[in-house]
């Protein structure tokens, strides 16, 4: 493989990781207008669960992903019932839901972080998994990055398929397009909202689990990922799951090529530059409906 293909692959791998970090948040925002700023904290929780189970029981971290997803899903139902349910019921407008959910998100962020600090301390944690180079067509990658990339893309595509072809997926999409219309045709928000919120946290947990295979984890790791997620979903268009996937890839590619052609010092300038440029050209993201 030539140098350029290798550079592109490197960018796509990072982009796939960005995408899976973002999609859960987009689901919650797209359906319910919940801007869950504690997204990164639940991602961190998923990372800690994976790390804990892997290091104490020696289970393969990929095999743990369904369990982590289930745990975070249940947690999501609880969080929804105690926090967001009341907001959705009492808020007079969508704007108010957005604002209050943002504030509750701050509360959750403090809460979850502190619980993890109490449980495991501030130290860096992590484990070595598939930390072996593999060669594909002459290019070398770390096996865990490739595996995480494949899993992330598969999970995102699976989600897209679910949304497109299943009953519940159709209900979710109908709801995203027209909440009142969907209610008129008999879609029950009382069931759908907690399910989708739980689904969002489950995706965050899986993203965290995947990241724990590649990077070190710590209780303060969440915030940068929340920010990454926000950038990716606005880039792709709020409420567009496919847009998040592509938004993640674009960001990864821009960083890889940009760093090569300019300087790695400019990495952050490039990421935020592309965000600003896209929003100026398309004020509702690349794939707004």
């Amino acid at each position: 493989m030539g140098f350029w293909l290798e550079l592109a692959a490197s960018g796509l791998i990072t982009g796939g990781i960005y995408a899976v970090v973002a999609i859960g948040l987009n689901l919650q925002y797209g359906l319910m207008r919940i801007m869950n700023i504690s997204h990164g904290e639940f991602l961190m929780l998923g990372a800690y669960l994976t790390w804990l189970a892997h290091t104490t029981f020696g289970v393969n971290p990929f095999a743990l992903m369904p369990a982590v997803a289930a745990a975070l899903f249940l947690l999501g139902l609880v969080v929804y019932r105690f926090c967001f349910y009341r907001i959705a019921r009492t808020a007079p407008s969508v704007e108010v839901i957005e604002a209050r959910s943002l504030l509750v998100g701050f509360g959750l962020m403090f809460l979850v972080q502190n619980v993890v600090y109490l449980a495991w301390g501030a130290d860096l944690r992590g484990y070595s998994y598939l930390a072996e180079p593999v060669e594909i067509a002459g290019a070398r990658f770390m096996a865990n990055r490739l595996a995480v990339f494949a899993f992330a893309v598969a999970a995102s595509l699976l989600l897209l398929a679910l949304l497109r072809w299943t009953m519940i997926g159709k209900a979710v999409r109908a709801m995203m397009q027209s909440p009142t219309g969907a209610q008129l045709v008999g879609i029950d928000t009382g069931v759908l909202h907690p399910l989708v919120f739980g689904g969002g946290l489950a995706l965050a947990g899986v993203a965290g689990g995947l990241l724990s295979m590649v990077y070190e984890i710590s209780p303060s790791m969440g915030e940068p990922y929340t920010i990454t997620a926000l950038i990716v979903i606005t880039l792709g268009g709020l409420g567009s799951v496919g847009g998040s996937l592509i938004g993640g890839f674009i960001l990864g590619l821009v960083e890889a090529f940009g760093m090569h052609f300019t300087s790695p010092s400019l990495k952050m300038v490039l990421s935020y530059g592309v965000l600003v440029a896209v929003l100026l050209a398309r004020p509702r993201g690349l794939f707004s409906r």
Partner: peptide
């Protein structure tokens, strides 16, 4: 000194939910 973030989080959530 060890649980203030937790308390702050709870206080915040309670305020938003019950003092909209």
């Amino acid at each position: 000194p060890y649980v203030f973030l937790l308390l702050l989080g709870l206080l915040l959530i309670a305020l938003i939910l019950y003092l909209p």
